[in-house]
């Protein structure tokens, strides 16, 4: 089942031969797993709800894209709102309150109290 990830394609000659050995080992293991899977009569995966996964990933990426230019406060609001979309039944009013509250709290804690090297406002 580890054949699910692209084994082997990442093989690239690097200095030293260890990466190559390891990659080929992975190819062999992937093949072995696949063979076992086929012999065992295939396999099924339970479906996974994509919505929360996508929302959480997007929230983190969104934070990454905005924090440099727009600052911590706005990036936090965006991240929390996007993440909230991942709930089965988002409660938007509550999400907005949470977003503003968390953004204010984090800005205060990390920006001012601890004085971390993180921009709080747009620049």
């Amino acid at each position: 089942m580890s054949a699910a990830y692209p084994v082997g394609t990442t093989v690239r000659m690097g200095p030293g031969y260890l990466p190559r050995i390891v990659a080929w080992g992975l190819v062999a293991l992937g093949a072995a797993s696949m063979l076992r899977g086929v012999l065992a009569g295939g396999w099924r995966l339970e479906a996974i709800a994509l919505r929360p996964v996508a929302a959480v990933a997007l929230a983190v990426v969104g934070f990454a894209l905005t924090v440099d230019r727009l600052g911590l406060f706005i990036a936090s609001v965006i991240a929390v709102l996007v993440a909230a979309a991942g709930e089965a039944r988002p409660r938007w009013r509550e999400a907005v309150v949470t977003a503003l509250g968390l953004a204010a709290f984090c800005s205060a804690l990390f920006g001012w109290v601890l004085g971390l090297a993180i921009p709080v406002w747009p620049r």
Binding site: A59, V61, V67, D68, L72, V80, E94, C106, L116, A117
Partner: peptide, 26 residues
């Protein structure tokens, strides 16, 4: 639903403060 955005946010901020690198958050 209040807790998880906070966890996410702390993770993002934590990573960002290590190297100020947005790539690492991605």
């Amino acid at each position: 639903r209040v807790l998880f955005p906070a966890i996410l946010l702390f993770c993002c901020i934590g990573i960002y403060t290590v190297n100020s690198s947005a790539t690492e958050i991605v």
